[in-house]
């Protein structure tokens, strides 16, 4: 297992190098002149040139790249032009917001999709199978921003069950002491139940709208994978050996069926993490997606660069985790390493 971990870590290195190069190039190729934007509309060409020198944009690309690498090695992603804050700090405060939302949505989706898919496969053709089909169809055909808006309209505006879609916490509550950056975990750790419930109430609607969307591929894959495994020879052996139905379905079938589900899980997770910009916009969620879009619009390349880099590293870490999970579930993968 350790060998697998090390070999997979080694394969991650070239990806990271590639990402560093690409993020650098990409942001330099973006349309728009950051210096001009930063200087303002009324700035003289002289002032713009001055700012360009200050930002180091007048240097050649290789020089800029070396400077970028040196900064990166020191954990410095530069400053945001529009806020003046270091990008590292801004991402560090915003990433947990997105991560908390995404993880909660994913836990919800997995918690519903996997039992639903398993039941639909075991009781094929019954009402639960039809329910699964309806849920997956609805899930893929309703875009996240639409369910988000619909939920906000129904549960906040009409029914007033949910709080205003105004970020991670009600304005009257102060955020918990940051430990992990996840409000739910931090408030639970510090025993601040009022903040815990407040944060949960804020999280509920965006998390559910994202969960509904990611539920569909997970449930469908679980059902399909379970069906094919349930029809395989070793399940017949297990049944012919008189093993209890629970053992047959979980120990024998599900563990074999879970591999493709893990793959889909990884895809859904990375998709949610990057593409929740729309949900963040609808619910005024101070997450990383919103941050990146704003930076992109204002040609503020340091945050964009930081965002792409963070995402890429997250994706690589995620794929690594999935590879390891594969190795845990399937002994044949362990052998290949």
């Amino acid at each position: 297992m350790l060998k697998l971990l090390l070999s997979r870590l080694a394969t991650a290195v070239p990806s990271i190098v590639g990402v560093v190069v690409v993020t650098f190039m990409l942001t330099r190729l973006l349309p728009g002149d950051p210096a001009a934007y930063f200087a303002g509309l009324a700035a003289s060409p002289q002032a713009i040139a001055e700012i360009r020198t200050k930002l180091g944009l007048d240097k050649s690309l290789p020089e800029q790249f070396v400077a970028y690498l040196v900064d990166l090695a020191q954990g410095n992603l530069g400053n945001s032009l529009s806020t003046g804050q270091p990008v590292v700090t801004e991402i560090a405060t915003r990433l947990p917001a997105s991560a908390e939302l995404t993880l909660l949505a994913l836990i919800l989706a997995v918690g519903i999709a996997i039992p639903l898919g398993v039941l639909a496969a075991v009781k094929q053709g019954t009402w639960i199978d039809h329910l699964c089909r309806i849920a997956t169809t609805a899930g893929v055909s309703l875009p996240v921003f639409f369910t988000g808006l619909l939920f906000a309209y129904v549960f906040y505006y009409l029914l007033q069950w949910a709080p205003a879609p105004s970020g991670r916490l009600d304005v009257f509550l102060s955020p918990p002491t940051p430990i992990t950056g996840f409000y739910l975990i931090d408030s639970a750790l510090t025993g601040n139940m009022e903040v815990f419930w407040g944060a949960l109430r804020q999280l509920a609607l965006p998390a559910i709208s994202m969960a509904i969307f990611s539920l569909a591929p997970l449930a469908r894959m679980t059902r399909g994978s379970m069906l094919s495994v349930l029809g395989s020879d070793f399940i017949r052996t297990a049944r012919a050996s008189g093993l209890a139905p629970g053992t047959v379905v979980f120990t024998y079938a599900f563990r074999n069926a879970v591999l493709p589900v893990i793959t889909v899980l990884g895809m859904v997770f990375s998709f949610l993490l990057g593409a929740n910009v729309l949900v963040e916009t609808v619910f005024a969620w101070p997450g990383i997606g919103l941050y990146a879009v704003n930076a992109l619009i204002t040609s503020d390349y340091a945050p964009v660069q930081g965002f792409v880099l963070t995402m890429a590293v997250l994706y690589i870490a995620l794929n690594l985790a999935i590879d390891l999970l594969y190795g845990l579930v399937d002994p044949r993968v362990r052998l290949d390493s």
Binding site: F234, T237, Y252
Partner: peptide
């Protein structure tokens, strides 16, 4: 009961 194709008749990951 014993089946044909013993390789597929056994659970591959147990």
């Amino acid at each position: 009961m014993i089946f044909q194709n013993p390789r597929t008749a056994l659970n591959p990951i147990r």
